[in-house]
Design a protein around this nucleic acid. Structure first.
Lengths: 121, 121, 121, 121
DNA sequence: GTGGTCTAGACCACG
DNA sequence: GTGGTCTAGACCACT
């Protein structure tokens, strides 16, 4: 097994996105133990160092906690996960709107297009 | 004078976005002569090599044409500009939707949020 | 029952510090019998291997003695406890002063701050 | 040339401490360009990856900014450096006092010792 | 030239 | 077994 990665974004970033995405969707739950660095590295088809970096970054984000010699666990604190979700959403949208305007589109034109109105007119 | 650039996106990309955005908004018009690479580089506060790359990519995109000894001009072809506009829009949205899913959100949740419905319910 | 441990220091070290601290404060007295490795491990909420290591290091430091079949006892020798106390103090301070200098502070600035002078001037 | 490193602390941490120390002492000034990752790595006698990590961590701390293709610079913002200094000092002392108490010493006993009174009595 | 990412493989301390 | 650090060497995008 080995994941598919986009060529234009760092692998470690895509892995972070993937894991936080699973957290947001509830695939991974608070308190749950994540696979070991080495296990996950093999599963994802990346080097252990790359996975190590992912785990460290997640810990820096307050998403995981590591218990020495035992492994890495999703933080029990559900608030953090909730704010994570909202932060992500707000950031995603802010970036998108910024791009829209930089390229000369209006917000309405884009949202109309996305909600399907653009295709039916 | 020197433009403001976001730290997370290549400067040359931001310049391309800027120029195509001005094209889409009509700030720059078909047939119009663009500043020389050196002039524009100074104005933007970037290295001449960076500006050179911008012009080269714009030409590769079929947006500009170089007339030797005269300078760089926006293509006269209005169809190209129209397709450019649509290509950009489609690309922008496709990327956005990809990110949404990668991070565990649903398309509806995001569009609701963007169109304001998410805040009023 | 299970002790609280700081995340950045080895658990076995924190346990050694705790026990020597109790010795210094007189909570534990020379000649006193310590709990068995297993008992103490359960009480502290740590792995028995970890506790084993703590006892081993304490014995290596000359703080405890093991009487086969009877258990582990704090050394009767009061001089050893006295030197232990001084060694600890000197080590603690030496490390602290080293850190101070490594980070660009002067010894005076820090001691002034600690003794309260830094806040009242 | 190659720096001396203590064996019990990660090299990258010691390098971070060193650089922030130079910042605190004013050896390095706001806006100044730091040596390139590779240069500094050679000078310190460490691998370029290790130095890379140091620079990234510094950036994460808000101490440096990197201008793509140009290098890494100390942030111009002097407030950040000031708070850095105070944070460092407070952290250093808090850790020290914690250790003191964990080991059964009183704060007075230690500060007396450090300010020289302990040696003259 | 610059910072940044990735791999491969080794070694360590901790529990 | 776990996470963490370090080296060596390669490759990439950006300026």
């Amino acid at each position: 097994m080995s994941f598919e990665f986009l060529p234009d974004k760092p692998i470690y970033q895509q892995l972070i996105d993937r894991i936080t995405g699973e957290l947001i969707r509830g695939v991974i739950r608070p308190g749950e133990k994540l696979p070991s660095v080495r296990e996950y590295a093999v599963e994802a088809g990346v080097n252990a160092n790359t996975m190590q970096r992912v785990y460290k970054e997640l810990e820096g984000m307050g998403i995981t906690e590591t218990k020495r010699g035992q492994g890495t666990f999703v933080t029990e604190n559900p608030e953090r996960l909730q704010t994570l979700r909202e932060e992500r959403k707000a950031q995603l949208i802010a970036d998108f709107l910024r791009d829209i305007e930089a390229l000369g589109f209006t917000r309405e034109e884009i949202t109309d297009y996305m909600t399907g109105r653009g295709r039916n007119d």
